[in-house]
Every structure is written in structure tokens, then in C-alpha cells.
Design a protein around this nucleic acid. Structure first.
Lengths: 196, 196
DNA sequence: TTACAAAACTAACAGTTATTAGTATTTCTT
DNA sequence: AAGAAATACTAATAACTGTTAGTTTTGTAA
């Protein structure tokens, strides 16, 4: 009788979520079967249901965990006394670092959220919108203080968020840039592009 | 006996591809069933097989059509006598315009290519890589001629391509920016961010 | 050792999937 | 109008889906 494979300092639930995120990222949520997930954990599919409620619940936990992390960081940024340019810099750096630490989960939250059950999809989009609005306010603040050029704040935010979201392409390639190099390059590009 | 719905100056195949792209974008390739596609065309599912080879073939045609369009445009850019900054500007503008003209198909090519059958997935990634490499060369040329700052060209290209890929979020919202406004903002942001 | 809970197993389900076979109907060509 | 080609239909398929039921094994505490 096989047991769910776990690593040191990891609960079974952690292991399930980690493997689910890996599969959901590489194949997509819909294209990943519960049997497949069970395989990677070295166990039969129905055994998983001693630990999870449903397949959809896994996607849900991944997406909302990541959303919560972003929300938490945004709160610390908002309540910090720094200027808009420094805030923006820190946000860009955070996104890049977060992608490296929680690659699979961040990817899933970025690209597979559409597969969330209808009700949670709505809640997820609301949280995204709040995050985006917070970011827009920071940009607007920067424009008001003449730190930033007069561009449409919403387009600026979308441009920045999209750019950092696209980093997944660099992870799996030979071009193995370090987090620091990526942060430096992208801050330079994306921040200087809107700075007066 | 129902007939496949088509619009003026549109072949049946066009209509099938258009509706497929719309569904693949909004629900995902895997989550879209052939029956569903048939429904939107006002016909029974098996009838579609008089016009298509398989569901996968539809995804294939969408992805490679778009890839060909990008490749064609890249060739005209490469063989033009303009400077790297003008070339980059035109590429950014093209991406934005293309997204507005062929929204569903561009989205599918950007986000659903992972679901391509293995062999075509390889070919698709090769074409992407070629496009990316061409773009990298343009950036390198700009750096050599001191038009651009000394940043990692590959990161710069990824940043630009990811940023324009993310525009889908603006289409479906109240913020109805015109193509021109988006082009102006993003060129300003993304091009000035790397310009000396 | 015994009892109990946690977690694994096998078997099976009802539903959905893309697709094929075979047949009827419509449309085009002559 | 007749014959051919295109295109629609119904019925059925085998494979796969997430999940449940019921049972057996394992781990833990007395």
C-alpha cells in the first residue's frame, strides 16, 4: 500500500498542492486528470479524496493563496511612507521574486484562473481588480507629484503587470538570468519608461 | 436540416474557425467541446467533420495562421532601412493593432498553444523562437548604435512581447481605450524605457 | 494486544469526450 | 429532370472524466 510522497517539512496537503500546481502549469487545469496527479504522488486516484474535497478545490486554493500574498504585499507598500517611484520599483521587484519562489503556483494563478468555478472566479476577479486599482492609485500619485509622465495610469499598470507575468518564458530556457539581473533590467525598462 | 451559419463574404471554414477561436479564448481549448462549437454554428456535432479533420486541427490552424502573420510582418521590418528605434516602435504598434483586429485568434495563439499536438507544438515554438531572435537582433542593433541603453536584449524583448500580450485585459472592460491611445501610451512607456 | 482513526485500496458509477459509420437530404451540374 | 457531390442527420463507439461506496490496511494510543 503506497503512501503519498512528501518531502521534509512538508505536509501531505502541501505535497498535493505542489504537484497539482506543477501539472496545472505544464498541462493546464482541464488537461490534468486526478489520476495523473495521483500518479505523481505515487498513489491511487480515489485515495486523494481523503485529503482533498475536489479537483476544483485545488485550483481554488492555489489561486487564492497567491492572491492573498499579493494583497498582503500591496498593503505594506501602500502604508509605507515612500514615494511612488520607490513603491513601483518594489512592486516590480516583488513580482519577479515571487515568480521565482512560487513559479508553478504563480503561473497557475496567472493563466488558469479562468477554470475556477463560477462563484470563485467572480471573487478572484474582484481581488485582482482591487490590486490593480491600488497600483493605479500609486501611479496617479506619481503623476501628481511630477515623478511620472502623464500617461494613462491604467494602461501603465497593465503594461507593467503583463510584462512581469510574461517572465515564465525565461525560466525554462538556457538563458538562465538570475532574479537580480531580471529585476535590474525590468525596473530600468519599466520604471524609467514612465519617469520624468 | 440546419446549415452552418456564415456571414457575408465568409466561407464555412472561416465561420468555423472564427467561432472556434471565440470559444477557445473564452473557455479554453480543452474546456470547449465539439458539440458546443457545433451549437454556436447551429448544427449537429458530427456534421462539422464534413469540414474539419479534427478539433486539434482547428487549434493548429489558428495558431499557425497568427504565427505566419507575425513572421510576415517581421520580414518587412527586417528588410526596411529604418533605425532600430523606429523598427521597435512599428513592432509594438503592430502587435497592438493585430490584437484588436484578430482578438480571439491572437489570444488563442498566445495562451492556448500549449494544447497543440506534440509535433506541432515543437514547430510552433521554433517559429516563436525565430521571431524572438529577430526581435533580439533589432534591439542589439539599437544598442550598438547607441540608440538604446545597455540592457539584456533578450529580457527587453520578453518584456515588450509580454506587455503587449497582456492587452487582452483591456478589451473586455469599460475602459475602452482606442488602438491609437494604447499604441501611443505603450510605445512611450516601452520604447522610452530603453532609449538613451 | 486491542481498539480506533487515518488513509490506502478495488470496483464501479454516471456523465462527457471526440470521432466514426451509415443514411438521409440538400445543392450543384448537366 | 437526373445524377452526382456536398453536407446534414441519427446512432453508436470506446475511452476517459471526477467522484462515491465499501473494504482493507496501516499507524497510534490505551
Amino acid at each position: 500500500m503506497a503512501k503519498i510522497k512528501i518531502q521534509l517539512n512538508e505536509t501531505k496537503k502541501d505535497s498535493i498542492l505542489k504537484n497539482a500546481a506543477m501539472l496545472f502549469r505544464s498541462k493546464g487545469f482541464k488537461a490534468t486528470s486526478v489520476r495523473e496527479l495521483a500518479d505523481t504522488l505515487g498513489v491511487e486516484a480515489p485515495s486523494l479524496y481523503n485529503h482533498i474535497g475536489s479537483k476544483a478545490e485545488l485550483l481554488q486554493e492555489i489561486c487564492f493563496d497567491i492572491a492573498a500574498d499579493y494583497s498582503t504585499f500591496m498593503q505594506t507598500i501602500i502604508s509605507s511612507p515612500e514615494n511612488a517611484d520607490k513603491k513601483t520599483k518594489k512592486l516590480i521587484e516583488f513580482h519577479i521574486q515571487k515568480l521565482f519562489i512560487d513559479f508553478d503556483k504563480v503561473y497557475v494563478a496567472d493563466y488558469e484562473w479562468k477554470q475556477l468555478p463560477k462563484k470563485q472566479l467572480g471573487e478572484f476577479l474582484i481581488q485582482r481588480k482591487i490590486y490593480e486599482n491600488n497600483f493605479v492609485e500609486i501611479i496617479e500619485e506619481g503623476i501628481k507629484k511630477k515623478l511620472f509622465k502623464k500617461l494613462q495610469p491604467r494602461i501603465t499598470v497593465l503594461t507593467i503587470l503583463s510584462a512581469v507575468r510574461g517572465l515564465e518564458f525565461l525560466k525554462s530556457k538556457k538563458n538562465n538570468f538570475t532574479v537580480e539581473v531580471l529585476q535590474q533590467n525590468m525596473v530600468n525598462h519599466l520604471l524609467n519608461g514612465i519617469t520624468n
